[in-house]
Design a protein around this nucleic acid. Structure first.
Lengths: 208, 208
DNA sequence: GTCTATACTCTGATAGAC
DNA sequence: GTCTATCAGAGTATAGAC
C-alpha cells in the first residue's frame, strides 16, 4: 500500500467510525452507547478502536468537528448557485433542515448531545459551535447590508429564534407525518421574514 | 403524627426529591447523575431513596408528571386574569418561557432528558407530553374560533414552530446576556403573530 | 421507614502478545 | 495496527438488621 492509499484508508476509517457512532448516539444517546457497541458496529474490537480514539469523548469531539464541516458545506453548496438574497436565505434554511433531518446523524448529535461533554472537551466543542453560529451571523449581516431586512430589525434575535425553531423540528418531525421537510423549512422562512423585510423585498417575497 | 400530617410529609418528600433530582439532571444530565448523588443531595441514604422510588427511571417518570402539572398550572394562573385573546396568548408564551428558564428545573428536564427513557417508561412519558401539547392546541383553537387568527392559517404548524423556538431558548439563554426573558418571549410572540392575524386584531396587536 | 452492607453488572481504559 | 485478556471503578438494585 502506498503512502497515499494509507492516508485515504485512514480518512475513510475516520468517517466510518464517526458515522456509525453518530447513528448509535442519535438512537440511544451518548452515555447509553458503550465503546464496545461502537467497535462491534464498526466491525472492530474495542482495542482497535482505542488505537484510533484514545477515549470516548475524543470520538464525540471529532464528530462535532466533522458535523460542523458537513453542515456548513451543505449550506454553501445549496446557496452558491442562488443569486437573489431572499432565496439564498430560504435555500440555506432548507439545507439546514435537510442535513439535520434526512442527512447526517452527526449534526443531530452535535445539536443534542453536546451536554455530555465536560471540561476541556466541552471548550473545544463550544468553539466548533461558534464557528457555525458565526456563519449564520454572516448570512444575516449580508441580508441587512443588501437592504433586504429593515434596518430597525434585531437580526441577532431573528437568527436565534429562527434557528431555534429549525433545530427543535428534530424533536417532533415524523417522516410519515403531515408535513414534508420542504413545507417545514418554508413555513419557518415565512415566519422569519414576515414583517421584517424592506418594502422592495416584501413584494418579492410574496411571489416566492 | 396524624394521618393527615403523614400524607403531607409524604407529598413534601416527593416534591423535595423531585426538585433536587431535577437540578442535578439539568446540570449533569440524567445518565451522569447517580442515585447515590441524588440520595446524598436529599440528605438520605440510597436505601431510603429506594423505598420511595424503586428505580432511577421511576424518578424521571414521576418528575415529568409533576413538570407537566407545574407548567400547565403556571400558564393557567398567568392567563386566567387576562381577557383579550391576543394578550392571553402573549401571557401564555411569557409564562412558558418563565417556568422553563427561571422557574422549575423539572420542566427543563422534561424537554431535554426524555430521550433517556425507554420501553414502558417512555410510553408513559410520551402520554404526559401529549397532555401539554393538547393544552396548547386548545389555546390556538380558541384563538381561531374567536376570529383572532385568519382562517387560512395552519395553526398546527404555527404552534409547532413557535413552541420549538421557545424551547430552544433554554440552550442559549444567558442570565447576564443581551436579552431579558420578557424580551425573548415578546419577540417570539411577535414572530408568531405577524401576518397571521385578522385585520381587526392586527390593529390591536400593533398597540400592545 | 430507615440504614448498612453488598451483590452483580457493565463501564471505559489499558497492557502486552502477535 | 490488531487482538486477547483484564483492571479498577462506577452503576443500579437489593437483602436484611434495626
Amino acid at each position: 500500500m502506498s503512502i497515499h492509499e494509507a492516508i485515504r484508508a485512514h480518512i475513510a476509517d475516520r468517517e466510518r467510525i464517526l458515522s456509525v457512532s453518530a447513528i448509535l448516539f442519535r438512537e440511544n444517546g451518548y452515555e447509553r452507547t458503550s465503546v464496545r457497541e461502537i467497535a462491534k458496529a464498526c466491525g472492530m474490537l474495542p482495542g482497535s478502536l482505542h488505537y484510533r480514539y484514545r477515549s470516548k469523548d475524543d470520538i464525540l469531539v471529532d464528530m462535532m468537528r466533522l458535523a460542523i464541516e458537513n453542515i456548513i458545506s451543505g449550506i454553501v453548496v445549496a446557496i452558491s448557485s442562488v443569486l437573489d438574497p431572499l432565496e439564498k436565505m430560504r435555500a440555506a434554511l432548507r439545507a439546514h433542515v435537510n442535513v439535520l433531518m434526512s442527512g447526517d446523524a452527526m449534526v443531530y448529535v452535535l445539536l443534542f448531545e453536546w451536554r455530555s461533554l465536560q471540561g476541556a472537551a466541552r471548550v473545544q466543542m463550544i468553539a466548533e459551535r461558534d464557528r457555525y453560529e458565526n456563519y449564520w451571523q454572516t448570512i444575516f449581516d449580508t441580508l441587512k447590508v443588501q437592504g433586504c431586512i429593515r434596518s430597525d430589525v434585531d437580526i441577532d434575535m431573528l437568527r436565534l429564534i429562527g434557528l431555534g425553531a429549525v433545530n427543535w423540528v428534530a424533536t417532533w418531525y415524523n417522516e410519515d407525518g403531515k408535513y414534508s421537510l420542504e413545507q417545514i423549512g418554508d413555513a419557518i422562512w415565512q415566519m422569519m421574514t414576515r414583517g421584517v423585510l424592506t418594502k422592495e423585498y416584501d413584494e418579492k417575497a410574496k411571489k416566492l
